[in-house]
Simulated scan of single mutants.
Amino acid sequence: MFRRLRRLRLKENLRELVKETRLDIKDFIYPLFVVEGNNIKSEISSMPGVYQMSCDEIIKECKELQNLGIYHILLFGIPSHKDSCGSEALSDEGIVAKTIYAIKKKYPQIIITADLCFCEYTDHGHCGILDMKLQTVDNDATLEILAQQAIILSNSGADIIAPSTMMDGMVLHIRTQLDKAGFSHIPIMSYSTKFCSAYYGPFREAAQSAPNFGDRKSYQEDPSNRREAILESLNDEAEGADILMVKPTLAYLDIVRDIRERTLLPLAVYNVSGEYSMLKAAQKAGVIDYEKVMLETMLGFKRAGADIIISYHAKEVAKLLK
């Protein structure tokens, strides 16, 4: 009997020795949604376990994250005031700027990535200033306010700037303006290949960012186009991006591998809201072993070539890895 047990232990140790892909909580970034007010922690109905939180609750959340070994967050802001140009994002007193400052004051070791976009701040829900004639986003006008927003967030203490608008030339313009403003040390994690995807549905509830007309096909990537998807990331690398990203992940692991094989830059994947909510729904229905499927999914992301995983599952992963 004892010999058999010994053999089993040795077999497991051997499996560990030759394991090719491993999960480390240090590779994860946890997204957070900040709203105005105090003592607010409101669960998002389509994303069980994920909350809209006021700044004071975000500070409490950061303490919990640190205790779990999570030191990287991605911050989204949901202002109470929205207008056509997203002016709340262009103020030092804006919701994300103030929250970054508050987090850094309390927990300076937390690495804050600031999402750089306007869909949460505009009353029309699109990612920048509109060209009313074309009924889509004005690329060049949006570049100007993206750079303003990047400088404000950097000045507030953001460690990484993550532009997600998919505007042509956004990385080059933001890099140039950050450098001029004295922020040449701030890296850019570009949403370099961001698809126009149906997987974003729950996020749009969380961030209150659904467009009130049309869609984002004119500036987000066509899910049908593999070569163009690769080119988008390589263009952002040429413009000075420090980290590339593929979003969503589950349906685009071929693209993750394609980009991984063509760049030496760190590569992030965004395990988006729809992917998260599907696993949660399957867990509730009792049709999967949730924890095993979740970890298998994360391993798939790493195996495909991701260095960084942005995921709403990060806290659950941290508890399981412990």
Rank of each mutant, 00 (worst) to 15 (best):
A238D: 14
S311L: 06
F76M: 08
C127A: 13
F76G: 08
F301Y: 15
T113A: 14
R260H: 12
H185F: 11
R216C: 11
L320F: 03
I70E: 04
G286A: 12
K105D: 11
R9C: 05
E120M: 10
Y276L: 04
E88V: 00
D140R: 14
G300M: 08
L75P: 08
M47S: 05
G286C: 10
M278N: 02
A89M: 13
P79C: 02
C127G: 14
Y71P: 01
Q208K: 15
A304N: 05
A282D: 07
Y270F: 15
G49M: 07
F213W: 10
N67M: 11
D92I: 01
C127V: 13
Y191F: 15
F183V: 09
G300S: 06
H185M: 04
H126R: 03
R204V: 06
H126W: 08
A238F: 08
P202L: 03
S45C: 02
M166N: 12
K133C: 01
K280N: 02
M294Q: 05
G125N: 12
S197W: 05
P79I: 00
S156Q: 02
L178Y: 03
K319S: 12
H185W: 09
I25W: 06
S84C: 02
D140Q: 14
A141C: 08
L130G: 04
S233A: 11
H81W: 02
M170L: 00
I152M: 11
S87V: 06
A282N: 10
F301S: 03
D83N: 14
G77W: 11
I59M: 06
I100D: 04
P48S: 08
Y252I: 07
E57Y: 12
Y200T: 07
R3T: 10
N38V: 02
A181P: 04
N38L: 01
P202M: 00
I58F: 10
Q283E: 15
E144D: 13
E12P: 00
I112W: 09
T113F: 13
S42K: 15
P79R: 02
A281K: 13
K133D: 13
I78K: 08
Q149F: 01
Q109G: 01
D289M: 00
R227D: 14
L295N: 07
N139F: 04
N139W: 03
D56P: 06
Y121F: 15
H126D: 11
E239G: 03
I110N: 04
E57D: 09
I188N: 06
A198G: 13
E237A: 15
S87W: 07
E43P: 03
F203D: 02
A162W: 01
N155T: 14
K217P: 09
D27W: 04
E239T: 08
G86N: 06
M166L: 14
A210W: 12
Y121M: 07
D115C: 03
Q135S: 13
D138K: 11
S87I: 09
